[in-house]
Deep mutational scan, measured.
Amino acid sequence: QLWTVEEQKKLEQLLIKYPPEEVESRRWQKIADELGNRTAKQVASRVQKYFIKLTKAGIPVPGR
């Protein structure tokens, strides 16, 4: 299922709330739990694509 604008905005906020961890899967699980309707795997996939998009555009990656 496609990500809504609201989900993307919340994801961006949660990336700041939950900074990078030694075991990133824990971070994705915390974010997924707060989103409520996404799995950690879906979050990880979305974040990877989002970070690539930001990097290509020369925009700083949130939480890094």
Rank of each mutant, 00 (worst) to 15 (best):
A57V: 07
Q29M: 08
W28N: 01
K41C: 11
K49V: 03
V61H: 07
W28Y: 10
V23N: 10
V43G: 01
R26A: 14
P60Q: 10
R38N: 01
E34H: 05
R46P: 00
E12L: 04
E21V: 04
L54A: 15
A57P: 15
K17T: 07
N37D: 08
A44S: 10
I52T: 15
Y18G: 01
E24P: 09
T55K: 12
K53H: 13
Q29R: 08
K9G: 08
R27T: 03
T39G: 04
E24C: 07
D33V: 07
A44Y: 06
L11D: 00
Q29G: 09
E34W: 05
V43N: 01
R38S: 04
G36V: 12
K53T: 14
E21M: 07
P60H: 09
Y18D: 01
T55H: 10
V47I: 05
Q29S: 08
G58R: 08
I59E: 15
K56R: 13
E6D: 09
Q42P: 00
L15W: 03
F51C: 15
L11I: 04
T39Y: 01
V47S: 07
R38Q: 06
E24D: 12
E24M: 11
G58I: 06
L35G: 02
Q13W: 12
E24I: 05
P19N: 04
L11H: 02
A57Y: 05
Q29F: 04
P19H: 04
I59L: 13
V5F: 10
I59P: 14
P19A: 12
P60Y: 04
K53R: 11
K30Y: 03
L54D: 15
K56H: 10
K10F: 06
D33P: 01
A32N: 00
K10E: 07
K17Y: 04
G36E: 10
L15G: 01
E22N: 08
Q48R: 11
K30F: 08
W3R: 04
R27E: 02
R27Y: 03
K30N: 05
V47F: 04
K41W: 10
R26W: 09
V43R: 00
Y50C: 09
Y18M: 04
V47D: 02
R64F: 13
I31H: 00
T39M: 01
G58H: 12
V23P: 14
A44E: 14
Q48K: 13
S45P: 07
I52K: 13
G58P: 10
Y50G: 14
Y18A: 01
I59W: 08
Y50F: 09
K30A: 05
G63A: 05
Y50H: 14
R38Y: 10
E24F: 04
R38H: 10
L14D: 00
P60V: 06
I16A: 15
A40I: 04
F51A: 15
K17Q: 08
E21I: 05
L11K: 01
I52W: 10
A32F: 01
T39K: 02
L11M: 05
L54M: 13
L35F: 09
E12S: 07
R38V: 13
L54E: 15
K41Q: 12
A32M: 01
L35H: 01
L54C: 14
P20S: 15
K9F: 06
V23S: 11
S25K: 07
P20D: 14
R27S: 02
R46V: 11
F51D: 15
I59N: 14
I16D: 13
S25I: 11
L14T: 01
L15N: 02
K10N: 07
K53E: 13
K9C: 01
K53V: 04
Q42Y: 06
K56W: 03
E24T: 04
K17F: 02
Q8G: 06
Q48L: 05
E22Y: 04
P19R: 06
A44K: 12
G63V: 09
K10H: 13
I31W: 00
L14K: 01
L11W: 00
W28F: 09
V61E: 13
Q29C: 08
L35A: 00
P62I: 06
I16M: 15
K9L: 07
I31L: 03
V47Y: 09
R64C: 08
A32L: 01
R27C: 02
R27H: 03
V61A: 13
E12Q: 07
I59R: 12
K49F: 03
Q8A: 09
I16G: 10
Q8S: 08
Q48G: 09
F51Q: 15
K17G: 01
D33I: 11
R26F: 11
K41P: 11
R38K: 14
G58T: 06
K30C: 04
P60T: 08
E22G: 08
K30G: 02
A32W: 01
Y50T: 15
K17I: 04
Q42F: 03
W28H: 05
Y18H: 08
A40V: 08
Y18E: 01
K9E: 12
V61D: 14
G58Y: 03
E21H: 04
R26H: 15
I52R: 14
E12D: 11
A57K: 13
W28L: 04
A32H: 00
N37A: 08
Y50K: 11
R27F: 02
K53N: 11
L11N: 00
E24S: 08
I16R: 10
G36F: 06
K10Y: 05
S25C: 12
L35E: 01
A44I: 05
L54F: 14
W28I: 03
P60R: 07
R46H: 13
A40D: 05
D33T: 09
Q13A: 09
D33C: 08
L35K: 01
R27K: 01
V61M: 09
T55C: 07
L14N: 02
Q42W: 04
Q48S: 10
S25W: 10
F51S: 13
T39Q: 02
R38L: 07
D33F: 10
R46D: 06
N37E: 09
G58Q: 14
E21G: 06
K9M: 05
G58M: 08
I52F: 15
L11Q: 00
I31K: 00
P20W: 10
Q48H: 13
Q48W: 06
E21N: 03
F51T: 13
G36P: 10
